[in-house]
Nucleic acid binder design. Sequence first.
RNA 1: GCGCCUGUAGCUCAGUCUGGAUAGAGCAACGGACUUCUAAUCCGUAGGCCAUAGGUUCGAAUCCUAUCAGGCGCGCCA
Length: 553
Amino acid sequence: MYKNLQALVEAKLISALAESVKKAIYESELELEGVPEISIEQPREKEHGDYASNLAMTAASQAGMNPRKIAEIIVENFAGEGVEEISIAGPGFINFKLKKNWLYENLKLINKLEADYGKIDTGQGKKVQIEFVSANPTGPLHVGHSRGAVVGDVCASIMEAAGYDVEREYYINDAGNQMDILAESTLLRYQELCGKEVELPEDLYAGDYVIEIAEDLYQEYGQEILEKDKERQLDICREFAYQDMLAKIKADLNKFGIEFDNWFSERTLHPDKINEAVELLRDKGYIYEKEAALWFKSSQFGDDKDRVVIKSDGSPTYLAADIAYHLDKLERGFDKLINVWGADHHGYIPRMKAVIEAFGYDRDTLEIIVVQMVNLLRNGEKMQMSKRAGSFVTMNEVNEEVGRDAARYYYIMRSSDSHLDFDLELAKEESSNNPVYYVQYAHARIHSIIDNAELQPESDNLELLTDPAEVDLMKMLASFPEEIKLSAESRQPHHLTAYAYDLATAFHAFYNNCRVNTDNSQLSGARLYLVDAARQVLKNVLTLLGISAPAEM
RNA sequence: GCGCCUGUAGCUCAGUCUGGAUAGAGCAACGGACUUCUAAUCCGUAGGCCAUAGGUUCGAAUCCUAUCAGGCGCGCCA
């Protein structure tokens, strides 16, 4: 069954154009080597029709004729179906106005597929892993993590809709000295609770959340830990704080609608997996020793310089763990590995791509989605935060203040390449200033119409849907599968928030122009059918974004 | 110094990958539309040297080069 009627209509139009060119060449009206690559586009201006082709212009130099003349020849030979009007305009555009049948057919397709409308097969079941968030379990997720969290989650959903087999993974950086710092910070706070005078050194975590961990710890152990030796104290604190933080991170993500298929602990790589991975690279000749350390020849694969993997004291670097981790991912058989990183880590990309290539894979097997920084604003004023000073706004605080739907929408409404201004007061506002409510309102309005209707949706008289507002709405509905394709291939969720907004706009305009529940039962039945399709697509797109679709507001 | 991202309306941003016709949207401003299915809506007006300078071509916000400005990054940290 066709899942993407618009793509089919476009393909047919292109092949009809190709036939026309072929015929013109055969009859010696056009002198061309062969049929050139043909593209069509939807013109901005409505007067230019539903589709336009620049074919005559691109073929002009080879044919040695002026574009308008070529266009005339192509138009004369054109015999495609479903075209109501074909014309030549401007410097040589061929414009097509299509019959509306396919839009009516598409409404039926929506009605039939329901929640599956929009899903396509372009991913061909390829196995994709998306790794995102992956924050250290040394503190709660803060607002800096949120954008990457939603971008990763929604990219995963979109790629699923596009026919990929997607797995969501979180890499827990639970090894390394930041865990020791967490342990020491917790111990200090614990000692404080036990009545000791303590002073917090600058390099420890100062956030209040450490006090909370210490309180939990005290609840469980009382003063018992004080009697152990220092090593043992730190071990207890480390494990307790780790489990406590990880549970909080999971809970916060779940509350935000984000769930992972797999949580991968860095610890499981130490030391065997890391040693094996380094040895494998050494076997391939990409490891050498210098100044008592082991270096990876990443510069051989486009990196600025080589990188240390085993320090002179024998301990592995963070990169070494990442090498082992990515080798493990590759061995798990994914066709594509996608990592979502904050812009502050972008410098790490060349060396990771080098790792992939060194293991013998195409460097494009690994793809990095770089997400630019978020500026948190309140009433236009930038909020300052610093993790070291412990003065940061947590992801959970923001979500609780503005609500999950608005927060998710805001994090993905802009291109990941652009920095994001996130104004808490704007996101909270329940008004037309807030795009998320605008979209949800459209959905709620439709429910209201359907509740008020005395008839059932009816597909027998869809040709009555000819009002420009109705046609616009039907076109918007028809483009949903293509929008999913675009978002999935570009890994850019913001295309879909824009689509959701535009769809809502088309509906609201329709609502103000066309009354659904009228005395004309044929027209009302057809409009109910249309409106029900709009309801379904709004619900589908919101679901994809992880945003609720309320029936009333 | 080198690398990545950004620069489009007063503000926040689409459009750049894949070059097309008169560069779009929201907010803010101004003017209209509720005895009618939810006015959290709609319609209209006004607002632009697409950072700058070159280049490529029938055609450039879009591609190339250089420059300027802002953000981020250039560890035997993670």
